[in-house]
Amino acid sequence: MKDSKASCRPEEARDEADGGLNMISRASIHVVAYATAAVAITVLFLGGQLGQWIELAGLSVSRADQIGFLALVVMGLVSCSFGGSRLGVMITGTIAAFIVLTAHQELAMVRYLSLGAVLFAIGIYGMTVSRNAIRMLMSIELMINAANINFVAFAHWVDPLHIRGQLFAIFVLTVAAAEAVVGLAIVLALYRNMSTVNMEKFNLLKW
């Protein structure tokens, strides 16, 4: 199965050359997405003076946060435009943003909840975008686990006596296992009928 790689190396190289053009357009989409995301978050933070609803949310923003975000946005834009790896930029950007957002939190719980939110968002992205049905299942597992982090964090800080959050997390694990089993069986059945797991090909009900 895999050792076909060696034989079709030239094709692969051509694919990558083709992908070069695509890469640029794709990279630009991501740069825009990254920039808008970063700008959006920065604006939200700067908006402590700007909007009523931010005050409603009760945010208190230090100057350091704003500087950090501006630096992040500039860094990301510069490295993207000079051909830096898109994935690398996204990863470093996410981690740096995560640290900036959570390092000064008074409650340790909020850190864990934020990490859960980050993983959940990545899972949503993967689920929406994946071409491969199995990768989609994996993204769903990722989301379920992100939710589990929240349960356990709440169990630790809100309900340390009865740890009901952990109990619920156990039920979530069970449901996740059942979901994975049925999902894989469905993928298997689909593969048998369509001999592919490409999500684009599953369009019989589309009109």
């Binding site: 992908g19 794709r26 995301a37 959006a40 959940f120 968002a121 949503i124 990768r135």
Partner: peptide, 26 residues
């Protein structure tokens, strides 16, 4: 091999939704 793992049509929407989800939760 050499295929983009993502469906290009969904990328913009997906990024928007995931960023929105994170921002809302945060």
């Amino acid at each position: 091999t050499g295929m983009n793992p993502a469906l290009p049509a969904n990328v913009g929407l997906a990024s928007f939704v995931s960023v929105l989800v994170f921002t809302t939760i945060y």
